[in-house]
Simulated assay, not measured.
Amino acid sequence: MMLKDKVAVIYGAGGAVGGAVAHAFAREGAKLFLTGRNRAAVDALAKEITSAEGSAQAAEVDALDEEAINAHLQSVIDTVGRIDISFNAVGIRNTTLQGVPVVQQALDQFLLPIATYTKSYFLTARAAARRMAEKKSGVIMTVTSTPSRIGIPLMGGVGPAMAAVEALTRNLSAELVPQGIRVVGLRPHGMPESGTIKEVFGLHAKAWGISWDQFHELIASRTHGRRLPTLVEMANVAAFIASDQASAMTGTVVNMSLGSLDD
């Protein structure tokens, strides 16, 4: 098992991405501390994992609340003595953030994703790094999407937010690697199994005057395989990146766009 006895904290565990990664980490032997604002969803995930003989504890933590983040991480330290992996999979509703031309957006609509994502990733990364530095070991992981690198219409502030998180990923790595901490990002393309992506695809389809299926086919047609990646594929890559087998990977963002974005 690639993550045997590794201690992993997952933020946004109640969502599709966080849940998929939690199952992959558990399968590889990690001890999970699952967090989210929706305690019921996190509890249900923890129950699924423990029922499959995995190790998971659930907690209600707002990944935008500095005090809550620090209190939870301290409780993890008090329980198991260390943190090996910090994975942030937080997301926000996109019903008013995408599918609208920038010139029609209010300033607060444009700034909301930028402020939310950068704040959450900064707070969770900083809190984890301070504790990982004591052991001179750890992996901090971020999640973005292809608008960080591709100009796409009707994205509002989401593209700039994703680009900012990727810049933060690189800068954190430059500072933290000398302390034994790797920082790596994942950049999957739209995964339509995710409720968030379904919602986003619907917003764009409506704006373009086409059906959800037509928009899905349009996005998929731009990949080399004419399909979009799955949650399982993303989670499997995440488990590898979090493991010691990926010890040379830091300060980078893993491209999982199936060729639609050339590096």
Rank of each mutant, 00 (worst) to 15 (best):
residue 108 D to H: 15
residue 128 A to Y: 02
residue 119 K to I: 08
residue 123 L to Q: 02
residue 125 A to K: 05
residue 110 F to K: 03
residue 136 K to N: 11
residue 112 L to S: 01
residue 117 Y to F: 13
residue 122 F to Y: 12
residue 120 S to I: 03
residue 136 K to C: 07
residue 132 M to Q: 09
residue 108 D to W: 13
residue 135 K to M: 14
residue 109 Q to W: 07
residue 124 T to C: 09
residue 112 L to W: 00
residue 112 L to I: 01
residue 137 S to H: 15
residue 121 Y to C: 05
residue 122 F to M: 13
residue 125 A to S: 10
residue 109 Q to R: 14
residue 117 Y to P: 00
residue 108 D to L: 13
residue 130 R to G: 15
residue 111 L to R: 00
residue 127 A to R: 05
residue 123 L to S: 01
residue 115 A to S: 12
residue 114 I to P: 00
residue 115 A to L: 10
residue 110 F to M: 07
residue 110 F to R: 04
residue 111 L to P: 00
residue 135 K to N: 15
residue 120 S to H: 05
residue 127 A to S: 10
residue 111 L to Y: 03
residue 109 Q to T: 08
residue 125 A to D: 00
residue 133 A to Q: 11
residue 109 Q to K: 12
residue 115 A to E: 04
residue 121 Y to N: 10
residue 120 S to L: 07
residue 122 F to Q: 06
residue 109 Q to G: 03
residue 124 T to I: 06
residue 133 A to T: 12
residue 128 A to V: 02
residue 129 A to I: 06
residue 109 Q to A: 07
residue 114 I to F: 00
residue 121 Y to I: 08
residue 122 F to I: 09
residue 137 S to K: 13
residue 116 T to R: 08
residue 136 K to V: 12
residue 135 K to R: 11
residue 110 F to W: 14
residue 108 D to G: 12
residue 108 D to M: 14
residue 116 T to Y: 13
residue 112 L to G: 00
residue 115 A to W: 04
residue 136 K to S: 11
residue 108 D to P: 10
residue 129 A to S: 15
residue 108 D to C: 12
residue 111 L to N: 02
residue 136 K to A: 08
residue 137 S to D: 12
residue 128 A to L: 07
residue 116 T to L: 11
residue 137 S to I: 02
residue 115 A to F: 05
residue 124 T to Y: 05
residue 129 A to W: 09
residue 121 Y to H: 14
residue 118 T to S: 08
residue 110 F to E: 05
residue 135 K to I: 06
residue 112 L to E: 02
residue 128 A to W: 02
residue 134 E to A: 13
residue 134 E to V: 15
residue 136 K to F: 08
residue 117 Y to R: 02
residue 123 L to R: 04
residue 127 A to T: 11
residue 111 L to G: 00
residue 115 A to D: 08
residue 124 T to G: 02
